Simulated scan of single mutants.
Amino acid sequence: MRGGRRRPAPDRRRPASGRRLSPYGFLAPAFVLYAAFLLYPILRAVQLSLYRWDGLSLGVWVGLDNYRAVLADERLRAAFGHALVLIVFYAVIPLAIGLVLAAILNRARVRGLGFFRTVVFLPQVVAMVVVAVAWRQIYAPNGSLNTALRAVGLDALTRAWLGDYTFALPAVGFVGTWVSMGLVTVLLLAGMARIPGELYEAARLDGAGAVREFFAITLPAVRGEIAVALTLTIIAALKTFDLVYMTTNGGPGTSTTVPSYEVYRNAFERGQVGLAAAIGITLTVVIFLINLVVNKVGDRTS
């Protein structure tokens, strides 16, 4: 107003009523969605795991018997063991290859790096069912892999890869390596791009070579990206289902069965929904514990 004091600017943090907005007002809708789509299904699965139920008739309370069956059944124990083996193919090998590949590309400053990132990331975009069908054809007795081995005179190495008790699980795991390697490499390249170039210049002035630069500068700088990559790939390894289902169906015998496949088999083929729920909850706990260790180690070393 003219001739008077200026009116103070309104506090935008307060609503028209004059009350300060609580941060819980913003969190409540998100928590409701989180509880409805994540917490409730998990609690429901826990409830089902305490019953013997075929999905149709009335369930019978059995307490922890389904969890005892998970620990006692040799097939189910083997399934969890196979999942741990797949961690090596999905997480450890892609991380080792990705670190070397990303370090070389970052050091060489290759042209067209954006195009390369797109190409190596493509396996993440393609549906796993399509990937599984393609690799099933590659591994077939008359597929591309055996044809290539015969062409170079290595006929003794040819075999029905997905039907071999010894090589079926590594063959499935190699597909996981192919899928995960691009994701890991892109994550590591993004982390290495943030490293100041002055650090490398100072190291070179001190006489450091490429290997010393990698262990002294590059590796410590991308520990956060390594933790993220391990978290994503370990989860993918432990919960893999479609790849196994489309390539081996858990065979030959039980040599490639995994927990997620056992959940499907017990729930939809054997009518043991309670046991399937117990396997799923056990798998969830294993995934949580392994990734908790990975993140704790990552936080401690960063």
Rank of each mutant, 00 (worst) to 15 (best):
P29G: 10
R136P: 03
R109Q: 13
Y24H: 09
A102P: 11
R77A: 13
V125I: 10
L50Y: 03
G112R: 15
P141T: 06
P94Q: 01
Y51F: 14
V88M: 06
L105M: 15
Y24T: 15
I104K: 10
D54S: 15
F115M: 11
L101M: 10
L101W: 03
L64V: 11
A72W: 02
V110G: 07
A79S: 09
Y67A: 01
G63A: 02
A30G: 14
A35M: 07
F80S: 08
R117V: 11
Y139M: 10
I138P: 03
A36F: 15
P141H: 04
L38A: 10
R20D: 05
E74P: 04
G114R: 09
I97C: 02
V130H: 03
A103T: 13
R52N: 09
V120L: 04
P94M: 01
I87P: 01
L76S: 00
F37R: 06
F89W: 05
S57M: 04
F37W: 13
S22N: 13
L99H: 00
L122N: 07
A134M: 08
F31I: 10
W53P: 03
G112S: 12
V46D: 06
L38D: 07
A69G: 03
A45W: 01
L95M: 12
I93G: 01
H82R: 05
V62T: 03
A108V: 14
F116G: 11
V126E: 06
I97D: 00
L122I: 05
S49Y: 07
R20Q: 15
F116N: 15
A102N: 06
L64Y: 02
A78C: 03
V119E: 08
R111M: 13
V92E: 05
F31L: 14
A79G: 13
A45Q: 09
A83T: 01
L33P: 07
Y40C: 08
F121K: 08
S22H: 06
I104R: 11
G98Y: 00
F89K: 01
R109L: 05
L56I: 14
A134D: 10
A134T: 06
L99Q: 00
A78S: 13
S22D: 12
A45Y: 02
V129S: 08
R20K: 11
A28C: 12
E74K: 11
F80I: 13
L56G: 03
A35R: 14
H82M: 02
N142H: 12
V60G: 00
